[in-house]
Write a protein that binds this DNA or RNA. Sequence first.
RNA 1: GCCGAUGUGGCGAAAUGGCAGACGCAACGGACUUAAAAUCCGUUGGGCUUAACGGCCCGUGCCGGUUCGAGUCCGGCCAUCGGCACCA
Length: 900
Amino acid sequence: MNERRKPYPFDRLEPKWQQLWEERRAFHASNPDDENFDSTKPKYYVLDMYPYPSGAGLHVGHPEGYTATDIIARYKRLRGFNVLHPMGWDAFGLPAEQYAIKTGQHPEITTTRNIAKFKAQLQRIGFSYDWEREVSTTDPRYFKWTQWIFLQIYHSWFNSGTQRAEPISTYRGEDPDSVRLAYVAEVPVNWCPGLGTVLANEEVIDGKSEVGRFPVVRRPMRQWMLRITAYAERLIDELDGLDWPTGILLLQRNWIGRSVGAEIEFKIEGRQESLRVFTTRPDTLYGATYMVLAPEHPMVDQLTAPEQRAAVRHYRAQISSKSDLERTDLAKDKSGVSLGAFAINPVNQERIPIWIADYVLMGYGTGAIMAVPGHDERDFEFAQKFGLEIRTVVAPQSDAAASEQGSARDSHAGFGDSPKPSSRGASVHRRPTEGEAPSAARESRALPGEDVPPVFTGEGCAMNSPLIDGLPTAQAKEKMIAWLEEQGIGRGDVRYKLRDWLFSRQRYWGEPFPIVWENGKHRSLGEEELPLVPPPLDDFKPSGTGEPPLAKAKDWVHYSDQATRETNTMPQWAGSCWYYLRFCDPGNDNRFVGEAAEKYWMGGAQPGGIDLYIGGTEHAVLHLLYARFWQKVLFDLGHVSKPEPFQKLVNQGIILGEDNQKMSKSRGNVVSPDLVIDEYGADAFRCYEMFMGPLEQMKPWSMKGVEGVSRFLARAWRLIMEENQAGDWILSETVQDAPLEKAQEKIVHATIKKVTADIEALSFNTAISQMMVFVNAFTSAEVRPVRALRTLLVLLNPFAPHLTSEIWETLGQKFSGAPGDITAQPWPEHDEKFLIESEVEIILQVNGKVRDRMMADLNATKEELEAAALANGRVREFIGSQTVRKTVVIPQKLVNIVTG
RNA sequence: GCCGAUGUGGCGAAAUGGCAGACGCAACGGACUUAAAAUCCGUUGGGCUUAACGGCCCGUGCCGGUUCGAGUCCGGCCAUCGGCACCA
């Protein structure tokens, strides 16, 4: 008796249709080489970010994006496109390996099991994936080509002249290994003793490993790197042609971090060597009153004066023992030590002291800066602390600019002068009262001596700088760079925050590098030796020394008497850098993707090949940057036809638990799709996922909400089906081959129009509410014309494919006129003529407030409307004795009477 | 600190500068039922007023501006969330 009666028999019909679709290969996409390929149809490639198949299975957050893409895929098929809509598995990765270490079970077994679970869960939702194109990154037939692409990168260099990757054979220099796009370097890495592997920066959170929360230390190790920095400029510039959310574009631009400035050479007093610095503000060179090197800078030892040696050694030791966590945590407090040496400011020949400080990073620019405390917050803070000279060389606003803007300044209070003299003055004399947060930064800046000039980091006008006095910042920069170039001591320069990609991991469960070492040098395997499969191991545990697990497989490592194999493996990102290409032609064993298939599916007029890519923001920079990088290398080498992979990108928002908190096991608020489908069916699940709110928005789950959507689907079902005495669902007598009433015709066409536009705009929630309006309107009808119902079914089909397929089939048994499966129907077109009424309602306002409304002829003139409005009783009442100053008439909409 | 997104009923949310709250949830009332569930019909932003029909006022985070008219555009704040965080 507790078994809740199903509002409609989804538990019977959903498995039925899923099986039928599979038998009929209903969603199989043909490739250009296939015999039944229809070349007259346009293509549409809609892609999900494929999942890592974890042991926990799906939660309701995963299918949100998948449902959106599935609706688009089904919609585009109905609109006559060849649709590529694939799914696969990003199956290499740490959890399977950690599990293997714990249990001794090979990661492949865990992975296979998890994939089976994920796949079953996805299939229950009724997604129209072409499962014949399923790929897994762990399949040798797949990673053969991941390794092959690595070799293409390895065998290439970036020609800065042509701004393209080229085969290494075109390189004319002496040492090809110094320019390869894949290279080996001894670099400080994030070494995690707890996991026994190095980690990428993004896998380290607050100095601890993202997986397992083990401490991470910095340690130099020999690693494989990919020269992504060579593409920094193109990775920024070529974002311009993409249809991506502006937030993500910004995130990528900031991550790549382009800075335009100059490199400047400083002579060192009493020495041959000189120091080079990078600055974005060459116009402040006169204000450079000291210089700072990163503690790790290679010239520190030779520059240190004897009396400072002990202090410098102590400081450097202190810095290197700090974890990343401590280093960022202590970031607020500046520290540093003088080297006791001096540089010469090239613009005025002044002696300026050289310091080391950990606020200067070795990894950016030249690892050395010219410090301009008058115009840089950090330098200012440092100078304050150590009593270094602060010199003002930029005035907040030039005289010319000030007079030019003249009185306009008054209306923009505070424009352009950030120090805000009045509020500063007040804060110095006023003590913060209890409980009021003292604005520390501002006050400390002003307190030690009123005569200290404030730091001004904005643009303005050069002063105290003979060479460029009076010039606005932009011109001052230009002139200074020209002067530096003339003197041969500097040049204009562009720098990027982006670092080269640390591409090796000390793990078992990843792609082995197709590389062997001989006499201390690396060389590649031949293509015929691929795939290079990892050796079988019983013990996946890392050695703890930094030696990868693969090193334990002595036989495997032994390549020849002279050569041994590389034992590092590739990071998880490798497989996901090109999976979208493999989907075009997943069975190809002769090429990573067939040329015709790649050209077709990744083709089109736009720079990016994939028409729609939906996934979470967590991949805003990493995956999306790495994949773009690989695509560009492959494009340059002539292997693919587009410079960009993803033309249009959409991020779905996170789904929160019912408690409005992020779903997590520990909170116990995780909702599994299986439970929802058991209770309400896959169609209700899909529709609710879309009805919750805008796709991109974060929103909480609600079981009550699912119930509401389920009720809607049941009402749609009962519009057409009814239960007979025996308890069987049969076609309702109210469904007839009858003409539509005018009001019905209107709602049908309004629904076609809105649902179509909303799907195109990915505004699925409002598309569903329009279909609810349709169903509500027809529920009360005694006769339900079959033509209207069939239109609804096609519109609803992408959202609720099972239910609509079933009803469509049932209708076909009684009514002719629409033969075949619902998936073979054309998408309906709306006709505007059914939406236009001969009369429209006009809003009547007096002084902007609605006072009445009236019906008026569609073609009524402004004058007629105005006259009718002025004659209206309510309007007259509100005008009263006031005089009418003005009337605003918007035909077909409103009349507004303004009184004086 | 910097950058970005968001802020509308009890809740999820709608609204090309033109009737704020479509659609759904919850709640309340009614029909059906011996009863309940399910289903169907109705009410539902707040305040004031009316015997009633109805009417009036207020209301989209806060303050100001543009406009005949602002949830929507502009300026300034506040709050929440997300990203970056010494990048010279």
